[in-house]
Design a protein around this nucleic acid. Structure first.
Lengths: 280, 280
DNA sequence: TTGCTCCTCACGTCACGTGAGGTGGC
DNA sequence: TTGCTCCTCACGTCACGTGAGGTGGC
């Protein structure tokens, strides 16, 4: 009750640990790291004494550790004051939440496929695709940049076709010439079809090329916008792959996504694109 | 492309690791733990060979590790099939989400108080409280059981008073005779006041006692239902404590919460209870 | 013979937990 | 003298990462 005047009491490590909700072992580590140095260390016995005023710092460390913040990062936060410290914690936590979001989707994916609900989630069909003139741009990139690249490039190619006075196809493609994830960078090719009418396409600049996509058969399934999210979309690829396998077909070109609408005009549960695999 | 017929190909650890997105080091550890045993180990060279069909198991391990699931728990999941495995993952993830919720609130609390927004969040006042006859029950318990205990006991005491034909007070109390958290168990005392009118209270049974709470002064602040959530409520206690300290007052009894409404009829942002500290 | 892959063994990382064996203050 | 607290040092935990030094197959 009389603690008002005891702000400069020295506390033993045991008492200090109890009040701060830290273990003695942790306090000794923080001392060794210079994160929380005792107010006094007896030169003979090595006994540590803490100032009651150090409890603030100790409690803050304890709380940040409950957020699993690494000690090096805690040291950075402790160097900041007030709003800056609050912001640093907020920034850390946003990282955690981002990570949690990815993992949450992973759990959904696992639950769906392990429980067998994924087996009949996709209707697979086979269709003939005629040859098609396209504007195409190919790039190597990781999954992190994938969505942005697809959206921007598709828009750019549509714009080029329109400016040339040509009629564009209603669908666009993303062709995966190699795996795209954290470690593999494709490459990915974006294609937008057009009708080579009277007007002539000017020689496109940069990496954009005009080419002809050959006619082919493909196994495909239509997925909703929600289903395009990683890792859920893997389920669609798996389903198409299984279909191809079970029907004794052979993959003869790179797998692809066929977009027939834009994200802006599509609800989560509306059809958004096809996942397709050319087969022989 | 011809992998259809190679389901029983043996893969070197390097190839297998790349396909499963695991490191060789991890695969050797899983081998040592019996979590994922290579289809074949060369008795001379020690070279490990994996069956292509083992990729399923390996990829599942890799995904579960991305959820930070411990290897022992992964082993349990791998022993299950289909829906059971999905349920086990779901159960694990619910634990993670529960933990995340607690930590999320902790972040909110830290951001509020470090940025100084907490300083003026509570209006503290002082009031005189007259003496009061109460029914009281005291128990030692940890924070986990606290809310349930308060709600049930308060309801029970009100019921006892009503059945005795007496008029109950509009407010009830939770008095903290000791800290209540994961390690400390109070004790906590629940009190409901009544007017000792014509009818006589029967001698209450069990641990319930009749007593007189003495008249006193108390510093208090009113908080909303949302603010009662741990750890946010600590801010109210801090604010009252600071007020007492800064005004040179002395705490002369245990701190308490004064409830003047029930959770059922209260919105998150409506006043729900007072946090009070008797002072001299 | 040259690269490449694989092997084991040992030590490092992170933030502690858990003794062992010994000392200091009341 | 007896407990209690504190000290250092060493090893364990968890799931690997990172060499060191050496072998095997083409």
């Amino acid at each position: 009750m009389n603690e008002t005047r005891r702000d400069h009491d020295l506390l033993s490590i045991g008492v200090f640990a109890r009040e701060a909700k830290l273990t003695q072992k942790a306090l000794r580590l923080y001392d060794a790291l210079g994160l929380l140095t005792p107010a006094r260390t007896d030169p003979d016995s090595g006994y540590r004494s803490y100032d009651r005023a150090q409890l603030h710092r100790a409690k803050l460390i304890a709380l940040l550790r409950r957020l699993d913040m690494p000690l090096t990062r805690i040291a950075e936060v402790l160097d900041l004051r007030g709003v800056d410290a609050a912001d640093a914690i907020g920034a850390y936590w946003r990282e955690v939440e981002r990570d949690t979001l990815v993992r949450r989707r992973l759990v959904q994916y696992l639950e769906t496929y392990l429980s067998g609900k994924g087996d009949h989630m996709y209707e697979i069909e086979v269709r003939e695709v005629p040859e098609q003139h396209v504007l195409s741009l190919r790039r190597a990139l990781r999954v992190h940049d994938l969505e942005d690249f697809i959206v921007r490039t598709t828009g750019d190619l549509y714009a080029m076709i329109a400016r040339a006075g040509l009629r564009a196809s209603r669908t666009s493609l993303a062709i995966y010439h190699g795996r795209v994830d954290e470690d593999n960078d494709g490459p990915v090719e974006i294609c937008v079809g057009f009708e080579p009418g009277g007007a002539e396409l000017p020689t496109p600049g940069g990496d954009v090329v005009v080419k002809m996509l050959p006619a082919h058969r493909e196994a495909y399934t239509t997925i909703t916008k929600a289903q395009t999210e990683f890792p859920g979309i893997l389920g669609a690829y798996d389903a198409v792959g299984r279909y191809v396998h079970e029907h004794g077909l052979t993959c003869n070109d790179a797998s692809r996504e066929v977009y027939f609408t834009t994200a802006a005009e599509t609800q989560d549960d509306d059809p958004f694109c096809d996942v397709a695999q050319p087969v022989a």
